[in-house]
């Protein structure tokens, strides 16, 4: 009886896991398809990168300064 209960629980959990994994892979593929379509679209309409670069503030950045303490 105890083993049957375990088997039943195991079956339910394994099926939920299986469903979740397949569903996650499906969502991932769907996302990649949307990304690809979006990238194709943006390559035509995106502004020139040099125009954006002019607007970026530049901060002085030393290469990882020495420990402060």
């Amino acid at each position: 009886m105890e083993i049957e209960l375990y088997s039943l629980l195991s079956t339910v959990i394994v099926f939920v896991f299986l469903f979740t994994v397949i569903f996650a892979i499906y969502c991932y593929i769907a996302f990649r398809v949307r990304q690809r379509a979006s990238l194709r679209h943006s390559s035509i309409n995106s502004p020139a990168p040099t125009a954006l670069a002019l607007e970026e503030p530049k901060f002085f950045k030393p290469l990882y300064p020495k420990q402060l303490k």
Binding site: I3, Y6, S7, L9, S10, T11, I13, V14, F17, L18, V21
Partner: peptide, 14 residues
């Protein structure tokens, strides 16, 4: 999933 595919449902899963 590997264990389940092999037909064994372990007590470890629940």
């Amino acid at each position: 999933l590997f264990a389940a595919a092999g037909g064994s449902m372990s007590v470890l899963i629940p």
